[in-house]
Amino acid sequence: MSGDFEWIDEEAGPVVRPYAMTGGRTKPSSTAFDLLSMVVATGAEISPRAHLSSQHRRLLGLVGRARPIAEIASDIELPVGVIRVLLGDLLDQGLILVRQPMPAATSPAESLLLEVINGLRAL
C-alpha cells in the first residue's frame, strides 16, 4: 500500500492505533505544549541514531513554518495527546522549537475607562 498509512477503509481509520504510535506513552516529555503553542522545525540535521517513526517525519514536514499544535493535530488527523507526545520526542532531539502563545493584553483599569467616558461626554 502507498503512503504513510495503511487504511482499512475511510471510516475505520489507520490500522496503527494512537497508543502504538507513542509506544504506550500518554504524556509528553515537556510541559511546553499548549494548544496554541507555536511549533516550528529548527532545520537541524536528523541524527543517524535518531529513531524517528513515519509520524515523526510527517510532523517535521508540517512544521516547516510556525504552526499551533491544534492546527497540526487537525491536519494530521490524530488526537492532540498523541501529537504532544510525538512533538516532545522531536523537541528532545532538538528538531523543533516551541514558542508559547503571546499573553492576552491586559485590559485597562475600570477607573481609566470611566475617565475616558466622562471626558467624551464633556465634549
Score class of each variant (00 low, 15 high):
Asn118Trp: 01
Pro108Leu: 12
Arg67Glu: 10
Phe5Gly: 01
Ile46Arg: 14
Gly24Phe: 03
His51Gly: 04
Arg84Thr: 00
Ser54Gln: 12
Ala66Pro: 15
Val98Thr: 11
Arg84Trp: 01
Ile83Met: 12
Ala104Val: 10
Leu123Gly: 03
Glu115Lys: 10
Asp75Asn: 07
Pro14Cys: 10
Ser29Asn: 06
Leu112Tyr: 11
Glu45Thr: 10
Gly3Arg: 12
Leu114Gly: 01
Val85Leu: 04
Ala105Tyr: 03
Ala105Arg: 12
Arg67Cys: 09
Tyr19Phe: 13
Leu87Glu: 06
Leu123Lys: 12
Arg17Ser: 08
Asp89Tyr: 01
Ala44Pro: 03
Glu110Trp: 10
Arg58Cys: 04
Gly81Phe: 02
Glu71Lys: 08
Ala50Thr: 07
Ala122Asp: 15
Gly43Glu: 12
Val85His: 00
Pro14Glu: 13
Arg67Ala: 10
Leu90Gln: 05
Arg57Phe: 02
Glu11Cys: 04
Gly88Tyr: 00
Pro103Thr: 07
Val116Phe: 08
Met38Asp: 09
Val116Gln: 14
Gly94Ser: 03
Ser111Phe: 03
Met38Tyr: 06
Met1Gln: 08
Val63Pro: 04
Ser47Trp: 03
Leu60Arg: 09
Leu52Ile: 03
Leu97Ser: 13
Asp92Gly: 01
Pro48Gln: 04
Leu36Trp: 05
Ala41Ile: 05
Ile96Cys: 07
Ala109Arg: 14
Leu95His: 05
Pro103Gln: 08
Val40Lys: 14
Val98Trp: 02
Lys27Glu: 07
Arg65Gly: 02
Leu91Cys: 05
Leu59Ile: 15
Leu52Trp: 07
Leu78Asp: 04
Ile69Asn: 00
Gly13Ile: 03
Gly94Asn: 04
His51Asn: 11
Pro79Val: 02
Ala50Asn: 11
Gly23His: 09
Leu113Ala: 11
Ala109Asn: 09
Ile96Phe: 05
Gln100Pro: 08
Val40Ile: 14
Ser2Ile: 03
Arg58Ser: 10
Ser30His: 14
Ser47Asp: 15
Asn118His: 09
Leu112Ile: 03
Met102Trp: 01
Pro108Tyr: 00
Leu114Phe: 03
Leu95Tyr: 09
Ile83Asn: 01
His56Ile: 09
Ser53Thr: 15
Leu52Tyr: 07
Ser74Lys: 10
Pro28Ala: 04
Val116Leu: 13
Leu87Ala: 08
Ile117Arg: 14
Ala66Glu: 15
Ile76Thr: 05
Arg84Asn: 10
Leu59Gln: 02
Val40His: 04
Val80Ser: 11
Ala122Trp: 05
Glu71Val: 12
Asn118Ser: 13
Leu113Glu: 14
Leu123Ile: 11
Glu110His: 12
Ser37Thr: 02
Arg99Ala: 10
Glu110Phe: 12
Ala20Asn: 06
Leu52Val: 07
Val15Cys: 01
Gly94Lys: 08
Arg49Tyr: 10
Val63Leu: 05
Glu115Leu: 12
Ser54Ile: 05
Ile96Arg: 09
Ile76Lys: 00
Pro48Trp: 09
Pro18Gly: 07
Leu62Val: 02
Pro68Leu: 02
Leu112Ser: 13
Ala70Pro: 00
Leu123His: 09
Asp92Ala: 14
Ala109Trp: 06
Asp9Ala: 08
Leu52Ser: 07
Val16His: 06
Gln100Val: 00
Leu78Cys: 02
Leu87Arg: 08
Leu97Ala: 09
Ala50Arg: 06
Ala105Leu: 14
Pro103Trp: 09
Ala70Lys: 12
Arg65Ile: 03
Glu110Leu: 13
Gly64Asp: 07
Val116Asp: 13
Gln55Met: 13
